[in-house]
Simulated assay, not measured.
Amino acid sequence: MRLRSNRRQRSAAPSVAPAADSGLAVELRDVRRRYGRGAGTVHALAGLDLALPRGTFTAVMGPSGSGKSTFLQCAAGLDRPSEGSVRLGGTEITGMDENELTELRRSRLGFVFQAFNLLPSLTVEQNVLLPLRLAGHREDRRRAAEVLGRVGLADKAGRRPGELSGGQQQRVAVARALITSPDVIFADEPTGALDTRTAAEVLGLLRHAVDEAGATVVMVTHDPVAASWADRVLFLANGAFADHLERSPAARIAARMAALTSGASRSNVTAGAAA
């Protein structure tokens, strides 16, 4: 992993054609995101540079308002940066139009959200197959059975989400994310609605996808225990990378997060006094 922040550099020219394979799954170059204008401008991202290799599990943490959600949205092509370049699997996505971005998200990215986002009227199998259907590909029921078996739900294919527990629904969401063998799986607080034991099961599935299937996972979380499953933890503060840890226990991650939050609070108090 290469990690830098708050460094001005010239962005690469947008291109929708795949670049030569660099072995990187996610690349951000001087990514900035602003909201509003004039005195009311909010700098959600303040110049992020990041390079994540394929087959890695990265957790992103930070205090409330640090830019975590904006980072995920820009990295996944759900929002456009105000400046800078984003590449996914070697493909420059910054200059893509909405149709191209939609196609990329359907065919090359996987998503796991806190709220599961399953369609209640569809069966488990149909929910898992949905990304293939939306991308215009053949609905491969054998592949669906394979990924459902991988998440321990081979016998639930004909059930509907409402018949499953929350943990089972999140495992369906993981299976859905895996169905297209995506370049990157983006997970947004995937354990936020789960109890401790079930959360560990879901995190174990994401870890297994990285270790055994070569997937790349980028997870935003507030939970140090969840972050401890990752290869590395990146800490965001005020829209910039403030720190990182390599494969660390939950207690160390929590201590680093507490120090970061305390520092951010002191900065806000100082800024308010100056104003």
Score class of each variant (00 low, 15 high):
residue 110 G to Y: 02
residue 143 R to T: 08
residue 81 P to H: 06
residue 119 L to N: 11
residue 155 D to W: 06
residue 62 G to A: 07
residue 51 A to S: 13
residue 121 S to F: 15
residue 59 A to Y: 03
residue 141 R to Q: 12
residue 109 L to W: 01
residue 145 A to T: 12
residue 184 V to I: 15
residue 142 R to K: 15
residue 152 G to T: 00
residue 158 G to N: 09
residue 151 V to I: 13
residue 119 L to Q: 15
residue 88 L to W: 00
residue 107 S to L: 15
residue 158 G to R: 09
residue 178 L to T: 09
residue 74 C to S: 03
residue 184 V to L: 10
residue 162 G to H: 13
residue 60 V to W: 00
residue 115 A to R: 12
residue 156 K to P: 06
residue 147 V to L: 07
residue 166 G to T: 08
residue 101 L to A: 00
residue 122 L to Q: 10
residue 81 P to C: 13
residue 84 G to S: 07
residue 85 S to R: 08
residue 82 S to L: 08
residue 157 A to W: 01
residue 172 V to Y: 01
residue 108 R to I: 06
residue 152 G to I: 06
residue 144 A to Q: 05
residue 111 F to A: 03
residue 190 P to C: 10
residue 151 V to N: 03
residue 82 S to I: 06
residue 117 N to G: 06
residue 75 A to N: 03
residue 163 E to Q: 15
residue 71 F to K: 00
residue 159 R to N: 03
residue 68 K to W: 05
residue 53 P to F: 13
residue 140 D to W: 04
residue 125 E to T: 05
residue 171 R to N: 07
residue 67 G to I: 01
residue 129 L to N: 00
residue 136 G to Y: 04
residue 122 L to K: 09
residue 83 E to R: 14
residue 83 E to C: 06
residue 102 T to V: 13
residue 179 I to A: 07
residue 181 S to L: 10
residue 76 A to P: 01
residue 84 G to T: 01
residue 157 A to R: 01
residue 103 E to S: 13
residue 119 L to I: 15
residue 129 L to F: 08
residue 99 N to H: 14
residue 163 E to T: 11
residue 173 A to C: 04
residue 106 R to I: 15
residue 165 S to T: 14
residue 105 R to A: 10
residue 98 E to P: 01
residue 188 D to G: 04
residue 80 R to S: 09
residue 156 K to I: 08
residue 167 G to P: 06
residue 58 T to F: 05
residue 182 P to T: 12
residue 75 A to Y: 03
residue 162 G to D: 13
residue 170 Q to N: 14
residue 72 L to N: 00
residue 77 G to V: 01
residue 92 E to G: 14
residue 172 V to W: 04
residue 153 L to H: 04
residue 54 R to P: 00
residue 50 L to D: 03
residue 104 L to F: 15
residue 93 I to Y: 02
residue 56 T to L: 02
residue 163 E to F: 05
residue 134 L to V: 09
residue 101 L to R: 04
residue 131 P to C: 13
residue 137 H to Q: 15
residue 103 E to G: 09
residue 118 L to S: 07
residue 139 E to K: 02
residue 54 R to E: 13
residue 99 N to P: 02
residue 98 E to F: 07
residue 158 G to E: 12
residue 92 E to Q: 11
residue 162 G to N: 11
residue 137 H to D: 14
residue 100 E to H: 05
residue 183 D to A: 15
residue 83 E to Q: 15
residue 97 D to E: 08
residue 195 D to P: 07
residue 99 N to S: 14
residue 128 V to I: 09
residue 126 Q to Y: 09
residue 132 L to F: 11
residue 99 N to Y: 12
residue 70 T to K: 03
residue 130 L to K: 08
residue 122 L to W: 02
residue 53 P to Q: 14
residue 96 M to C: 11
residue 159 R to A: 12
residue 127 N to C: 07
residue 171 R to L: 04
residue 151 V to L: 09
residue 114 Q to A: 13
residue 185 I to C: 08
residue 147 V to S: 01
residue 76 A to R: 02
residue 130 L to C: 09
residue 162 G to V: 12
residue 123 T to C: 00
residue 165 S to A: 10
residue 119 L to W: 14
residue 115 A to G: 11
residue 123 T to W: 01
residue 57 F to T: 00
residue 81 P to V: 04
residue 129 L to Q: 07
residue 76 A to C: 01
residue 159 R to Y: 05
residue 148 L to S: 04
residue 149 G to H: 07
residue 72 L to D: 01
residue 74 C to T: 04
residue 153 L to C: 09
residue 138 R to I: 13
residue 109 L to M: 12
residue 120 P to N: 12
residue 76 A to Q: 00
